[in-house]
Amino acid sequence: MFGFWRDIESFKKKKVSPLSDFIEIDGIIPGCPPPSKFLGNCLIKLLEKKNIVLSPKNLCSECPYKNNFRFDLDTEISQMYPHNSQLNDDTENYDCFLTKGILCMGPITREGCDHKCIKQGLPCEGCMGPVSKDYTSNLVNFLSLFHLSNDLRNYSGIFYRFSKPRIWRK
């Protein structure tokens, strides 16, 4: 072998934790990426030695489609994303994703992003972070309200979206 490579065995055992687990932090600026105006305002707050205040509301509270949400215990959530045919159909685009059986993280995600994905016709993937403290418990409570299709029940990408399930790490 030629090249500059490193064994990743030692990295595989490592766990990623938020900075706040290790040191006292000044505040959280959520979002991936944080919305630019919000980021600017947060920095100004920090310079003024004030606290960053995060919205206690979830994304649904201001969602343009919230009125089209029809909660039905029989609704089965079976998709992570709309199919391309659904994206092509303009009339489909005015319903809440959950009503259409597509998993949208809006209910457990903090508002503040101006519904960027929703406006483009895609469900929220939760990049603004959990609205209340803990993502996992939020998600468990949220998912327990619905019928999840078998396919999604076995899908690791809901809980472990940007990580790998621990059980697979040898």
């Binding site: 072998m1 030629f2 090249g3 500059f4 490579w5 490193r6 990743i8 065995e9 990295f11």
Partner: peptide, 18 residues
């Protein structure tokens, strides 16, 4: 070039390719 999933970095196979 190729890659070994258990290593970080690229494997160039032979020195000429590096």
């Amino acid at each position: 070039f190729d890659k070994d999933p258990n290593l970080q970095g690229i494997d160039f196979g032979s020195k000429d390719h590096t």
